[in-house]
Design a protein around this nucleic acid. Structure first.
Length: 131
DNA sequence: ATTCTAACA
DNA sequence: TGTTAGGA
């Protein structure tokens, strides 16, 4: 199928489908006229790509593990390729660390603003003059 | 009508 | 990412 059909079938824009190819996530063949020709399997592939992107994985990583994951219709199931599960665990740890850092920043900001409560009227007037 | 590349917003 | 120009 061509890009228009795949876009309608997956709900992903043509622009994005071309971008996925550029990132090495999809490898459609080319028709003699230069048009991209996608395989049936690419519909499922796009679904997996969307899921992995939602999981916060960079496209460079997705390109390597895309074939190591199976979509049962509801969930993505890591499989085959050795080390994939391990890689995903490291990604999971990265997210946990990021959350911890954000919590620390949140706490710092909470305390910072908590101590400035009495000045809120002053700041509000200031911002009104410079919106 | 559909897609392509490149490039700007 | 969306959109658009200029072609095939």
């Amino acid at each position: 199928m061509r890009i228009g059909a795949l876009a309608r079938a997956t709900g992903v824009s043509q622009r994005l489908l071309r971008y996925y190819e550029e990132q090495g996530l999809l490898r459609p063949t080319r028709q003699p006229n230069g048009y991209r020709e996608y395989a049936e399997a690419d519909m499922a592939a796009v679904r997996r790509i969307r899921t992995l992107i939602q999981a916060g994985l960079p496209t460079a990583v997705i390109a390597h593990i895309l074939a190591c994951v199976h979509d049962d219709g509801t969930h993505l199931i890591p499989s085959t390729c050795p080390g994939v599960t391990n890689h995903l665990r490291r990604e999971q740890a990265r997210v946990v660390d990021a959350i911890t850092q954000l919590r620390t920043a949140q706490q710092a900001l909470d305390e910072l603003l908590g101590g400035a409560l009495q000045l809120s009227r002053h700041d509000t007037a200031e911002e009104t003059r410079h919106p």
